[in-house]
Amino acid sequence: MDESRVDAYLARIGVPRPAAPGIEALREIHRAHLMAVPFENLSIHLGQPIVLEEELLVAKIVDRRRGGFCYELNGALAALLTALGYRVTRLAARVFGGDRRPGLPFDHMALRVDVDGEPWLVDVGFGAFTHYPLRLAAREEQHDPGGAFLITPDGQYGDLDIHQDGNAEYRLDARPYELGDFRPNCWWHQTSPDSHFTRSLTCSRLTETGRVTLSGAKLIHTVGGERDEVPLESDAEILDAYRTHFGIVLDRVPVVANPPVPTG
């Protein structure tokens, strides 16, 4: 990423260029990214293919003023941090399901960022999660505005389980991967009727007081754990909500690609 693209990316998230790649700058970038760039899966429902190439991911966030899901958000952030002088490693994770078992390999992408010899977990692509990086080597509970986080080793393979408020969220593979390693699962999440991304619409970002989420035609403000839901009655209201709360300008309302089949 050249210097002009770095400056444009930093302007997108409202952060000045750091003097050096330190932990305080990383914390500022992490939170600012969550505040400015939404976690969203709209491309899937707009028929826009998601291609895991750094230039395209950065262009989507910086030029098109969009967000994305984990592969896009953490993939683009990895490019920015690397350009700023950070040592960045892409990590794969298996997300825990309702049965408390880890899901598919490469189901999620997170980042390891080493600062002054200390590894940090950086993740701006998991929705309502940590606001700041976590110490990857720490085994005591870490308190963050997003909750209480605990990282525990699992078994003999070096995997790490990431817990939020007592719930296991994902199992992290400590081995390094390239962006292209995530392409098969990125394609699966875009196309499979079994993927939760093809069965629902979401667009959500961190705010100063909580979160704002647009789920289909429902606008949700979450403040202090309390949810205020407002149904939107027309396409015009939905498009206005995308523009007002997320800075996303669309020419049509996304339609769920694979709506869930009723049972019972």
Rank of each mutant, 00 (worst) to 15 (best):
M109K: 07
A11L: 01
N258S: 14
A32N: 02
R171C: 00
R112M: 08
D116K: 12
L73R: 06
D63N: 06
S215L: 08
R199C: 15
H143C: 09
G75H: 06
D144T: 08
F69Y: 12
F197G: 03
P133F: 08
H163C: 10
G127Y: 11
A128F: 15
I44M: 02
L179M: 11
E55M: 10
P184H: 04
L160I: 04
I162S: 03
D159F: 11
G147N: 02
Y132N: 00
G98C: 13
L150N: 11
L91A: 01
D165V: 06
E72S: 00
L104C: 15
I50P: 01
H45A: 06
I248P: 08
I61S: 00
F39M: 03
Y170C: 01
G22S: 08
C186D: 11
L232E: 14
E3R: 09
R101N: 15
D123H: 08
D2Y: 12
V51S: 05
T191G: 06
V261E: 10
T89E: 14
A128R: 15
T263R: 15
Q156A: 14
M1T: 09
T244D: 07
P16Y: 00
V113F: 02
P119Q: 06
I44F: 00
R12T: 10
A79Q: 03
T207G: 07
M1V: 14
V37A: 00
E53R: 12
P38Q: 02
L150R: 11
E229Y: 14
E208T: 12
D116H: 14
L73C: 05
T198A: 01
G225P: 10
P18V: 02
H33R: 04
L206E: 06
H189I: 12
G210K: 02
E53V: 10
I151H: 05
H221C: 13
R135F: 06
N185Y: 13
A137R: 09
L239A: 06
V51I: 14
P254V: 01
T207A: 00
Y9S: 01
D107W: 03
I162F: 05
V261W: 08
P18F: 00
E141Y: 05
G14Q: 03
H30S: 08
G103L: 10
D228P: 11
E169I: 13
P254Q: 04
E3K: 04
V58D: 03
G155K: 09
A25K: 01
G210P: 02
I61V: 09
E229R: 11
H221S: 12
D194N: 14
G75R: 04
L134D: 01
R17P: 05
H30C: 02
P262W: 05
D144E: 04
C203W: 01
R205T: 06
I238W: 00
Y242S: 00
D116R: 10
W188K: 09
